[in-house]
Every structure is written in structure tokens, then in C-alpha cells.
Simulated assay, not measured.
Amino acid sequence: MMRLTFPRVVMVLTGALLLTYAFAIAPTTTSERRSGAATAEAKAPRPRGPFPPAEKTFIGVMTDKGPHDFTPVDSFTAAAKRSPQVMLFSEGWASATFDRTLFDRIRDRGMMPMLGWEPWDYRLDERARQQKLTAQEIDRIRSDQPSYRLSRIAGGEFDSYVRSWAEGIKSLGYPVAIRFAHEMNGYWYPWCELVNGNEPGDYVKAWRHVQDVFRAAGATNVAWVWSPNVRYTDLTPAISTYYPGDDYVDWVGVTGYYGKYDFAPYLSFDEVFKKTITEIRTFSKKPMVITETGASDHIGRKAEWIKDAFQTLPRYPFIIGLIWFEVNKELDWRIVSSPAVSTAFADAVAAPRYQVTWSPDVFLRTKD
């Protein structure tokens, strides 16, 4: 017969407690942990999308105030009777540093930020305009900026600056678009290969280098938007010569306006865009965005042009967005320019095709 001593009693009680924990308490705790993990997983935000959905086209806006002042956006929204889903704003390399608040202000209004990222000193252009120089003189001054020559960008001289933006955009945690060095086929910007001491092939090298810096920084929440201007003449180089390749482009864009032309009193949406769109589609099948457009009313046909434009868009199912230039600059491109124009725009974007919602948890559609 085993004599019960105090040490043995302690051992027995300890063993009993351990068995009780193993068979009763521990399974409950583990179950609670698993349940809690499952709940946390269920609550974790999952990407919604794609943006925009198939057979939909988003409406965007660009103003001269950008996210610094939303008054023009509010006026645009009231006239359109709906909120835009994308806001394009510009920042120039000479003075702009990454500022998260600009992106968050746009996000907080339910719009995706699209950064027009411009490697130049835009202040030279502003000063030239203030001096009331001719258009030719302004173009010469703004395009002659050797400090921002494409070879310097491709050569890494701006890498620390580019990296600071890459790290900042990565930290946003939601998708944005970047339209880098747009209208590269025009002679009015210093990143055109026809001016500023640039050489053929320099644009593609610069584009790829900038994007490689972003990739190295892990900034993968970006849709890269390559955006030439419409071609008005065949005398300029083929647009394909500036294309960085599908591996470096998510959306292709195109800029074009119905304004005041010397050679035609009126140009329809197709007359402005079709030739260039057709050319681009020969070398890229990426989704397309009309990255800038607007219409003037110099002969009283602005409302007609808007109606025609939005009736024409569905013929191009690969066009996933249109950004309106809501600015009174040189000509009044705004939809608030008259009640008739506002009504035409509101009626057009009321169609189901343009009923789109953006939110920070979407993923961006990068295929047709």
C-alpha cells in the first residue's frame, strides 16, 4: 500500500489539473482562437472590382485647382448630376514633392487619383504666359529645358526624387494611376524627342527607367498610363516609336479636343480621335482612356459635340474611361459654360454605361 505523503499529494493534484486543462480548457481556447482568426479573415478587406467593370466607362475630371480646391469639381458634379470616379491632377518635378494629403483628399471624395507626372519646370511656362508672349515663343521656352533632358532621367540623375514618390505612393495602400510625361509626340514639352537635345529612343528609355525604380521600391499599386496627343498630321513620327511596350503600360491614353481649327469649322469625336485610336490599336490592345478632352462653343455646337461623343464611345468597347478638362483656358472647355452644355453632358453620362463606382479596395482592369 502506497503511503500518501505531501509531495505525492501535490503531484497527484498537479496531474489532475493538467489533464483537466488538456481535455476541457485547451480545446475551447484553441477553438476560440481559430474562430477569432476566421472572423478576422472574414473582416479583412478583399479587393473588389475590377475597375471599371466590363462594358463600363468611367467619367473623370481635371481642373486647374486639382485637389487643392474642389470648388470646380463641385460645380462640375452639380452640372453633370453625378460625381466623377477619377480625378486627374498635375505635379511638376521642379517643385513638387510627394504629399499624401493630395491623394487622400481625392480618395475621400470617392475618386481614384490619377497623377499627371511631369518632368519639367512648369513655372517657365507660367512666366512666359504672364509676359503675353506668342504661342510659338511660349512653346520654345517651355520645351527648352536641358536640366530635364530624357537622357538624364534614363541615366538615373533623378532616381532619389523618383524613389521618394515611389515609396510615398506605395504607402497609400490603394490603387492610383500615373500618367507620366504625356503628349510625348508633341513639340511643346521638353520630353518630346524632337526638342531639348533629346534623341530617338530616349523617351522609351526614360519611361522604363522610371517604372523600374517604382518596381524596385515595391510600388505595385499603380496603373501606368501612356498618353500621346492625337495626330493632326502625318508629318510627325509614328506614335509607336514612343511606346514602351505592353510590359510597361497598363492603360493607353490619348488626348484630343474639339476646339477652333483653321482647317475645319467643326470636327466630330471620330474626326478628332478615330485616326489616332486606330493607329494605337495596331501595336497595343491595352485598355484605353481618353485622358483629356473638352469642347469649345466657338460656333455654338458644343452641346452637339458632347452628345455625339458619348453616343460614339460605345463603338469603342476597349475605351474604359473619359476625363473631361473642366478648365477655362485659352478656350472655355467647361461643361458649366452654359445650361445647354450642362444638360447635354448630364443627359449623356446618365446612360447605364457610365454608372461606375470607384473605391479604395478595387483592383484596376488592365486587360480588355
Rank of each mutant, 00 (worst) to 15 (best):
E193W: 05
I280V: 08
Y242E: 14
W117L: 14
E183W: 04
F345M: 11
E199N: 11
G116W: 12
P146V: 03
F103N: 05
M114A: 07
P360K: 07
W324A: 07
E330C: 04
F158N: 06
R301A: 10
A96P: 03
S31G: 14
I25G: 07
Y243N: 13
I25E: 10
P50N: 08
A44P: 02
N196H: 00
A346C: 03
T29H: 14
P190I: 09
K81H: 12
E326Q: 15
M2S: 15
G300Y: 01
V289Y: 07
V210K: 11
F180H: 02
A216W: 02
T134C: 10
E326V: 06
Q145C: 00
P287A: 07
G259K: 10
P119T: 05
M1R: 14
V272R: 02
D144A: 15
S143A: 14
G110I: 02
Y243M: 15
G66M: 03
W165C: 00
T63W: 06
R34D: 13
A22F: 10
T29M: 14
A303N: 04
F70Q: 14
E271F: 00
P47F: 03
D69Y: 01
M288R: 02
D247S: 07
D270S: 10
R365F: 01
W207I: 07
P190T: 08
G15E: 11
S95R: 09
V362Q: 10
N328Q: 10
R231V: 08
T241N: 13
T101V: 12
H209G: 04
F310H: 02
F345L: 09
R152Y: 03
P287T: 04
V86Y: 03
A346I: 01
F318H: 08
K170V: 00
F23Q: 13
V272H: 01
T366S: 07
Y174L: 09
K302Y: 09
D108F: 00
S337Q: 13
A80N: 09
S151E: 08
P52R: 09
K65V: 00
P84G: 06
R149P: 00
S268R: 10
G321A: 05
F51N: 02
S164Y: 09
S75L: 13
V86L: 10
V222H: 07
E330W: 12
R315N: 13
A264I: 02
D202K: 04
Q85C: 05
Y122R: 07
Y232T: 14
S240K: 13
R353G: 01
W324S: 05
S164H: 05
Q145F: 01
M87P: 03
L17S: 14
D139T: 15
Y243T: 06
Q130P: 00
I106E: 09
P7I: 06
P287V: 03
K170N: 01
D250A: 08
G66C: 02
E304L: 12
L13P: 01
